[in-house]
Write a protein that binds this DNA or RNA. Structure first.
Length: 272
DNA sequence: GACCAGGTCATCA
DNA sequence: TGATGACATGGT
């Protein structure tokens, strides 16, 4: 089916917010909520989507986010003007919360190619098989499907010290101590505090989970790249603390700070 | 073969 | 609060 609405497909899928999209033969393939998704853009600029099952693409691609209003709010200076022009139509995604949580725990002190590889490996080992166009794909497992997996088993997959954190997170969910969907309706600061009470989820990972899966668009995740770009452009080359950056972003970008963050991150990491 | 990576935690001043 | 080192391992 055809997707209508402003959407910069390539940058949305490859800006580092999601880890399971691959480009092959001119199309992007990914697995979302147990569905294989194929999505491609024609030379005319029309975007078409096929999927192995029922898939709410408007929901996943956040097509209801008012991009024009968002741009108006975060187009605060010449730098933002430039990255908006560069990635015009790039959207945040509304990703599945559990997969997002585990992916960003795995992302700790790692790099995007390696994160992608590891996430794929977890899906292959613990997810469900899905056949699509004569290939086999794997869903990302549920918390229940990861419940019995021990730290050592995860370490063998190359998770290193992150393995213990993944075990902690899964335990919090399966024990009922944490419910991710509830956080969608909880205020940003409270939801962040709840996530950070889990060992292995700190300031940055909590913000990523909230921004990329739980609708907290004011979250401004501060990693090494964002610290650099923010310090360089807005703190006169100094190296501000996370707290300083958070306070500044809340004031400077407001309710859509997370969009600004992703544009700056993408630019600083790949676009210069 | 260094150096770095979408950090977090414990510890100490 | 803020600084520092340990934690594992792969990418470049």
């Amino acid at each position: 089916m055809r997707i209508r609405g402003l959407l910069n497909l390539k940058d949305t899928l490859l800006c580092g917010q999601a880890f399971r999209w691959r480009k092959r033969d001119g199309a992007f393939y990914g697995v979302v909520e147990g569905n294989v998704i194929k999505i491609y853009e024609t030379r005319r600029g029309n975007i078409y989507l096929e999927s192995s099952g029922k898939f709410n693409y408007r929901h996943y691609f956040r097509l209801d986010d008012p991009l024009d209003r968002i741009y108006e709010r975060i187009n605060t200076d010449i730098y933002m003007e430039q990255v908006i022009r560069l990635y015009y139509g790039m959207r945040l995604l509304r990703q599945p919360p559990f997969e997002t949580m585990i992916s960003y725990i795995i992302s700790i002190a790692s790099n995007i190619p390696r994160i992608s590889r590891t996430v794929e490996e977890i899906a292959r080992n613990y997810g469900e098989e899905i056949e699509f166009e004569e290939r086999t794909y794997y869903s990302f497992p549920t918390a229940g499907e990861l419940a019995g997996v021990g730290e050592n088993e995860l370490r063998k997959m190359g998770l290193g010290f992150r393995a213990a954190y993944v075990v902690e997170a899964v335990k919090a969910l399966t024990s009922g101590k944490l419910d991710l969907e509830t956080l969608r309706y909880t205020s940003y600061p409270v939801a962040k505090k709840i996530l950070m009470s889990i060992k292995g989820i700190g300031d940055k990972v909590a913000d990523c989970i909230l921004l990329f899966s739980l609708d907290k668009l004011s979250a401004y995740p501060v990693d090494r790249w964002v610290r650099r770009v923010t310090g360089e452009l807005y703190f006169g080359g100094k190296n501000p603390t996370s707290l300083q950056i958070h306070r500044w972003a809340e004031d400077y970008f407001g309710e859509y700070a997370g969009y600004a963050q992703q544009y700056l991150f993408h630019y600083w990491r790949t676009g210069r």
